[in-house]
Design a protein around this nucleic acid. Structure first.
Lengths: 231, 231
DNA sequence: CGGGGCGTTGACCTATGTCAAGACCTGTGG
DNA sequence: CCACAGGTCTTGACATAGGTCAACGCCCCG
């Protein structure tokens, strides 16, 4: 059962506007669970019996089509609410969530969502806001896929990743979890070959420095320009 | 001020689960507005001061990028709630909504949303469910754009349109509002030229029969197969 | 030390975008 | 009622971004 410092979660968006006492009440109903790297937090089409808050780590949200194609919907970092199917009238998870690194999540039974959202409207509002932001982001991606070239899409995907989970180092900004060319391909609707070629080209231009499951952006500004098709 | 038959709206999803009395209360706060073909219900980036229910007609939700590209996010038919920015924590409309045909909408001032959603939780739930469904659809489109060929995307777009607003006729199922090749191109991330070629080819194959701003699907099943890349 | 997963690169092919020209409607104004 | 103008659609010719196929090198782990 959960026994951890409230302060870790107090400033997460999910709890914005809630009093410490309220947070304690909500947390008291949660179970804390460790999820090992590459294990699923939940799986697509499974009955949605719990919803989660990612306390630590990074989760990859993946959708798989009947014919086996995979698309990475998004990466989510600590503080994200995941598996909120019920809040939007679903009984089943629309995608799978996989730990990109070892993760710690809080889990609540779906059944208490009505009570919780009723008692803590601010919590509900925060959740709906998160859904709204994801809708906007997803729509953003539709636009990108519709009109931008592959190079721009890949550049923007990398930029999004460093914005979310980037860490400054000597060399530049590094993506804090292991990510392969294949992963990036699945985020941008292209192939690992093309991603590989692009990263190689960018490396020659001194924009990035990359290796096995690792990418460091050495010149973020130049990458932004590429992402906007400017140069 | 609104004076119309409650029965028109009673069985719309937006009001599912509300009593007749409740519906009357909600409707009493609304203004009914006519929007002529090609006029905007609201515009992208504008302050979100009202939200709407589409009583009659068809609305086209469009996003425009700085560099002038347009993408059609979706078409919405009678019964759809639109401009619900506030419910998801926005203060500005993320897209424009344009009447594809002459429309009638109900408008509520955004400011009463908190009160309304508080007093009629079922109404709020219906709204959030609608948002959730749009997120799922949008995600579906990301997948399609990521892995499917243009021909499949266009086929699926047409299928979606006839599912939403198709009307059976002698010839087949016809899309009930004027829609150009350019429109379809903007829905599928391609060009009007390619759409034109595809429709011509399908016409030769007896799958559709199309003309100026008009498409009739004569063989929906065959079109489904095309949409799945089967044949 | 061997094997599997990841990454790189070259050669080639094709779906689809771009460019260009023209045909066809439809509604409008004379 | 006719002719014109502007928007829509069609089609051909051509160019190319990026996918596919193939082969190989490099790590890292067991």
């Amino acid at each position: 059962m959960a026994r951890f410092d409230r302060s870790i979660v107090a400033d997460m968006d999910a709890f914005a506007g809630l009093s410490s006492d309220d947070i304690d009440v909500v947390l008291a109903r949660a179970n804390s669970v460790r999820v090992a790297k590459d294990k699923a937090v939940f799986s697509q089409d499974e009955a949605a019996e719990r919803f989660f808050l990612l306390l630590d780590g990074v989760v990859r949200v993946v959708q798989t089509t009947r014919d086996g194609h995979q698309v990475i919907a998004r990466y989510l970092g600590a503080g994200s609410i995941i598996g909120i199917a019920p809040a939007i009238g679903r009984t089943t998870y629309p995608a799978s969530a996989e730990a990109a690194v070892d993760c710690v999540v809080l889990a609540w039974p779906m059944s208490i969502w009505p009570e919780l959202s009723d008692r803590f409207p601010q919590l509900a509002a925060n959740t709906y806001k998160a859904v709204g932001m994801r809708l906007a982001e997803t729509q953003e991606r539709v636009i990108e896929l519709s009109i931008a070239q592959v190079e721009q899409r890949v550049a923007n995907a990398v930029l999004r990743l460093i914005r979310q989970t980037g860490k400054k180092t000597e060399e530049g900004i590094i993506i804090e979890f292991p990510i392969s060319r294949q992963d990036i391909a699945e985020m941008t609707g292209t192939t690992l070959h093309t991603v590989s070629r692009l990263l190689s080209a960018w490396e020659s231009d001194g924009v990035v420095s990359s290796g096995r499951q690792k990418i460091t952006v050495t010149d973020p500004h130049k990458l932004m320009l590429i992402g906007q098709g400017k140069p």
